[in-house]
Write a protein that binds this DNA or RNA. Sequence first.
RNA 1: ACAUUUUUAUCAUCUCCUG
Length: 420
Amino acid sequence: TVTYNSLVSGLAKAGQMKAACELFDEMEEQGYCPDIYTYNSLFIGFGRTGQLDGLYQFFDKMKQENITPDIVTYNSIISAFEKAGQWKEACELFDQLELAGCFPDVFTFNTLIHGLSKGGQVEQACRIFKSMPLKGCAPDVVTYNSLINGLGKTGKFRRACRLFREMKEKSLAPDVFTYSTMIAVLGKKGEVGKALQLMEEMRIGGCNPNLVTYNILLSVLCKSGKLQTAMEQFRDMSSKGLSPDVVSYNCLLHGFGQAGLTGEALMLFDSMKQSGCIPNVVTYNSLIAGLVREKTPKSARRRVLVVKQVNLPFADDTCDSLAKSYVEFDQVEKACQLMEEMMHSGCAPDVISYNSLISLLCKQGKLEKTFEYLAQMKQRGCCPNVVTYNSIFSRLPKALLVENVYQLLESMKEDGCTPD
RNA sequence: ACAUUUUUAUCAUCUCCUG
C-alpha cells in the first residue's frame, strides 16, 4: 500500500491525474485498500489541476468506504478551492471544520491566509491571522511570508514591513522566502536601496539568495530603470554559481525595452539563446512590447554611451563596431520576424502577442498587415478581445479608420466583443 | 525505527481611462 501511495502521490503531484486514477483502480484490483494517504494524494492532485469534480467524486467514494477525512484531507480541499479561486467555499469549509470534529492546524491557517490574499481578501486574511492565537495555533514563518506577500501586493507596505519586524522580534527566523518577498515589497515601495541592503542582510544572517531572490531583485531594478545595477547583479549571480534562467532574462529584456533600448534588448536576446536558455511567450511579448514603445531610435553615439554604462555582457567590442551594429532596423519588420520565430520554435503567440503587434501596426498606419494579423489570430484560435479593437480604434490614423469602421465593427460582432 | 499526503516568494502584460 505504501508503495502504491508513493506512486499515486508522485503522479498526482505531476498533475497526471488520469494515470493516478488508473493506478488507484489497479490498487483495488490487486486487493490493496486505498487508505487516507491514497485519497489525500488524489485530492492534492485534483486541486493542483483544478479538477474539483474529480475531487468530489473521490471524496464521496472515500466516505462510502468509511474512511474519515482528517485534517490533511480538509487542508488539501481548502487548498483546492483556493487554487480554483473559490475562496468563499474555502472559508465555508474552514468554518465547518470543528463541526466535523477536526481542528485547524497551522497548515489550515496558512492555506487559508494564502488563498484569501490571492483572492484579493487581504483584510479577511489579517483577521484570520489575528484569530490564530485564540485557536491555540502559533503563526510560523510560512504564515508571515504569506501575509507579508499579500499585504505587499496590495500596496500595504507599512503593514508588511511591520510584520517583518514582528517576526524577527518573535525570533522567528526569516527564510529565503521572507527575504525574497521583502525585497519585492521594498522594490514596489520604491526603496531600491533598501532592497539591495536586504540582500546583504540576508547573507549576513546566513541565508543565501537563490535564483528567485535574484530574479525578484532584477525585476525591481529594471522596473525602476536601474539597468546598470541590474547588469551588475546579473553578473554577480553567475559568479555565485546561479545560472540565470528565462525569468532573469525576461526581466532584463523588459527593462531594456522600456528604456527604449530595443537594439540592446535584441542583442541580449541573442546572447540568451547562445547560452542555451529557451525563450518563452513572455520573452517574445516583452521584446515586441519594447518595439511598440520605441519612438525615435536614439543616435548611435548616444546608444554606445548607454551600452558602455550598462556594460552588457557582449559589449567588449570596440565602440566602433557597436555603433555599426546599431544600423536602424524597421520595428514592424522586426516584430513580425519575432512572431515568425516564435511560431517556428513551437511557442504559440497569445492574445497579448497579437495585441502588441497590432498596436504597433496601427500606430504606423499599416492597415493591410493589421487585417492580416487580425485574420491570423482568429485562424489560430486566438480570439481578439476588447483590447485588440480598442487599440485599433485608438491608434489607427483617422482617415484609415473611417474607411474601415464598418468592417471592423462587423468583425467585432463575430468575435462576441462588445465595445466598452 | 524510518518511509508515502496538505501551506509561502520571481518575469511581459497588450489598448483606452486615471494618476
